[in-house]
Simulated scan of single mutants.
Amino acid sequence: MFSYFPGNYAWSTSVNLALMAGGTIGDIHRWLAPLRDSGSTDVFEWGKAWSAMGHQQEGLAEIDVRAGHLTTAGTRLLRASVYHATGQRQIPPGPVKSESYAAMLQAFADAVEHTPLPVERIHVDSPDGMLPGYLIPATSRLDETGRAPVVIVFGGLDMTKELLYAIIGRTFAERGITCLVIDTPGVGEPLRIRGVPARPDSEVPARAIIDDLETREGIDASRVAVMGLSLGGYYAARAAAYEKRISACVAWAGIWDWGTTWRRRWETGAAYHVPWFQLPWALGEQTMEGALERVSRFSLVDVWPEVAQPLLIVHGEDDQQIPLADAARAFEAAGSADKELRVFTASDGGAEHIQTDDPDPARQLIADWLAQRLVVAPRTRMRAYGIAGR
């Protein structure tokens, strides 16, 4: 892995995630080199550097707006939102974190306004209250009725919908698939604004999301896929197991038993990509002991056999967060007849967790795999039977 902060896995993997989402090494080096060179591990100094990085882009965007260069301004603002999002992930809950998160939301909203980004903000009514998300509409290959399949994207531990948009962008839309990036319980707005913790039964929010999608024009709700990054791979698999309206599943990290993984991390002091406060906070617990008890419910050991839809698991050979052996066990246990485990190696690039060290090959592979099952294959079947579309 590219270790900008040697010996500091959490900060280095955050740098890689920011690059994955469209940050630039020039910006990052300009603001983070003093921290690296001094050996500082102060998370508030870390947060200040990322906030300054984001605000610099916002200032440059203002100049672009005055010059009438709105698309350029929007691009800078999207990058600013990535920088604010990256900085606040290492900061404990409190005023500083909240201020940085608000700056992220504002920068993204301004990017949508100025570019304009082709997204539609939606709110899904669920048992946990309203879940906010962004629909990214398909741009091509719609069926005869003008509808497109859709993929619901779940983020990992503290991966917001804005960061998901920056990572995915138009990758699915260009292949004829509408994409929904959404904050679910335990992340983004539900956690920060309403205090809604993560829940193990992800089929509950998934069910509410699909109910909502069935009411929207331009979406073929008979072709709904789920995809999840990191912990989102757990959410996607669990949703597919118990919500049979889902047509395909992608786990961008093959999770087996997340509770056991966390217990092992805690007992060994293993490096992780977020500080230890993150787990209790996301799960609505006050102590690590309570969080470890609650996280034991996040197991897919008995769930994978219930996943019958076409399944793709994407994993890195050198994943330091989820062992490759867990992905292999998940693949063997999955009940899908159409299933694939794609392991990226060091020679491929993308050998780290969710391929942050070289993400684009995995991103394109996932999009092509979903297009084959949601766009190409359904049309082939329809033509074979003389059906114009549902």
Rank of each mutant, 00 (worst) to 15 (best):
G74H: 03
Y9V: 11
K97E: 12
R294Y: 01
A377C: 05
M1W: 13
S81H: 08
T145W: 14
G186P: 03
E162V: 11
A327M: 07
D125P: 04
T184S: 08
R238G: 06
A270P: 01
R147T: 13
E45S: 12
G335P: 10
I193N: 14
A18L: 07
R194F: 13
P93W: 03
A270G: 12
S12W: 07
K161I: 07
L105G: 05
L292C: 06
H353E: 09
Q57E: 15
L164V: 09
E289S: 09
S230T: 10
E45Y: 00
E189T: 15
N16E: 15
H55E: 14
Q320N: 12
V196G: 05
T184R: 11
P93D: 08
T184M: 07
I177T: 06
P359K: 02
M1D: 13
G335A: 01
W281A: 02
P6G: 09
F2P: 15
P310E: 11
E293I: 06
P205D: 02
P205G: 08
Q106N: 12
E144G: 12
H55P: 02
E217P: 13
E189P: 07
A61Q: 02
A367F: 01
H273E: 06
R89P: 02
R207L: 01
S100W: 04
A241Y: 08
G74F: 03
T287G: 04
V187N: 15
A49R: 05
D319P: 10
H114R: 14
D183S: 02
P93L: 02
D37I: 09
A61Y: 00
I177V: 15
A10K: 12
L77R: 12
V274T: 05
S14G: 14
A107N: 03
A271Y: 00
M382F: 05
L311I: 08
V43I: 12
K161M: 14
R76H: 11
P132W: 02
E62F: 02
I182F: 12
G386Y: 00
P185R: 05
S14L: 12
D318C: 13
A291P: 00
T380F: 07
Y165K: 04
R79A: 09
V307R: 07
L32I: 04
L77S: 09
D358C: 15
D357P: 11
Q372A: 15
Q372R: 13
H114M: 08
F344V: 11
R36F: 03
W11D: 06
F44H: 15
S14F: 03
M159H: 13
S14R: 14
E243F: 03
I313W: 03
A80F: 01
L231H: 05
I152C: 03
R147N: 14
A138H: 00
R342H: 13
Y242K: 09
T260C: 01
T72M: 11
G269Q: 00
D158A: 08
V375W: 03
H273G: 00
G269D: 00
R194I: 00
M227R: 08
A109E: 10
A251G: 10
C179M: 12
A371F: 09
G228L: 02
S14E: 14
P95C: 04
A10H: 09
S222N: 13
M159V: 15
G335I: 04
W369A: 10
D27P: 00
V301K: 09
I193L: 14
A271P: 09
V376E: 09
A166H: 06
A377M: 13
